[in-house]
Design a protein around this nucleic acid. Structure first.
Lengths: 230, 230
DNA sequence: CGGCACATTGAGGTATGTCAATCTTAGTGG
DNA sequence: CCACTAAGATTGACATACCTCAATGTGCCG
């Protein structure tokens, strides 16, 4: 990890890319940016570990990361896949709780770190800002309940297909190594691999390395509909 | 659904049982209570439906309910099991989003409904209150990520055992019909039933009807440890 | 260029889903 | 208050999708 001292305004520009900060007026943003830090992380480095005090809200402005939860038996499960721009650890930072999970960079990342005190002040001064943060959290809750509803549901191929469709982009790059995406979807790497093979032949999806492309969206939707139930 | 006109102070007393409102000082609580409603629902009745506008925060003060998410194919999945006292729909109420799920009473319920405007005012006037709400939301996020991490993990019996252990009570009553608990845990009713049978013989757990009791906590923990992996 | 982690493909076992029949419980109405 | 009815719970038999183990292929980073 390396902390940068960027020119004034640079941090503010990065802030502006983040949800919840986009809606802020420019002067408030600059005020916050003045007290924030810019940090660089390298692939594989941890943004934070379970149990760490939440000293700052992190805005992931470049790169991607995975959030891991450690189970009693020591195994780790991917519970989130993060792609910039996105907020991380906003809730524990506000409530003062310890961080409940570990986050690891999937590639080199740039992060805007906003110290807890600065964030809490911002919420106190501007309740609307608190509501914007809540909107972000709401989104996260939605995603989680969706993921939960999806889990154990459908066969592996349909689950993967639904996830690709939910990415809402005709083409793109997997936000993590396949084994981590597999873990996130609750599958073994082998099953994930086979599921992709099925989607290639029947689902109108092209996958090469970590790049994917939806060749035939309607074919994919049809495939999902014909594999609705478990 | 039936709306009551209780004596002054009654609503305030119910409010005081709810997380996030407990910490409020008495006068603020009374002010909010004066503008809140008390509602009674009967078993099987819906507290709200997906897509409804979130007009009020609901404080479930008596009874229990299940929160359902409808999948594209029309099937429903239990994503939360609620037991009083607990807040429902606080986030969409604050952010003004539509309700993302449906909630159905598992038994007769009593609910304190706090109109959106009253809640938003309270948050605006008292940032500390906003943070307390965030703490509640944080808890929910935690539960969801835990549930997600648990899902697809371990065999059925271990998953059920872990859930019972997480209830954190030596004995109690299932918060919903077995089929709904099963659904919540991502299992078929039959599998759930068999899992309970295993826990009875090997896990030191007694189950009769909807009542359960942990006869031998260490036996249960040992059982879970020996069935760690999937 | 070499080593290692990841990805893919194959084969086989098993836990869980599915279908079906019986038993129990709770809610309804006489 | 009791009998009736329907929904839920349980148990068994069977099918299958996924996990596991293993071997090979591929790409990336040092």
């Amino acid at each position: 990890m390396k902390t940068l001292q960027p020119a004034a305004g640079v941090v503010a520009r990065h802030l502006a890319t983040l949800p919840a900060f986009r809606g802020l007026n420019a002067s408030d943003r600059e005020r916050i940016a003045a007290e924030a830090f810019l940090r660089m992380y390298t692939r594989g480095e941890a943004l934070f570990h379970v149990g760490d005090p939440a000293t700052a809200l992190l805005g992931l402005v470049r790169g991607s990361a995975r959030v891991l939860r450690t189970r009693p038996d020591g195994q780790e499960k991917v519970v989130h896949l993060l792609t910039a721009p996105v907020l991380v650890a906003e809730v524990p930072t506000l409530t003062g709780e310890a961080l409940p999970a570990t986050a690891v960079c999937g590639e080199d990342c740039m992060v805007v770190a906003i110290p807890r005190t600065v964030l809490v002040d911002a919420v106190r001064k501007d309740p609307e800002f608190a509501l914007r943060i809540l909107a972000v959290v709401f989104d996260r809750l939605q995603q989680l309940t969706r993921a939960l509803a999806r889990h154990g549901q459908r066969n592996a191929a349909a689950r993967v297909g639904a996830w690709i469709l939910a990415r809402d982009a005709p083409s793109g790059v997997l936000p993590a190594a396949k084994k981590d995406v597999a873990d996130y979807l609750g599958l073994q790497p082998e099953t994930f691999s086979r599921a992709l093979a099925v989607l290639r032949t029947e689902g109108g999806v092209e996958v090469e390395g970590d790049a994917f492309r939806i060749l035939d969206r309607s074919a994919l939707e049809r495939f999902l509909n014909t594999h609705e139930s478990s």
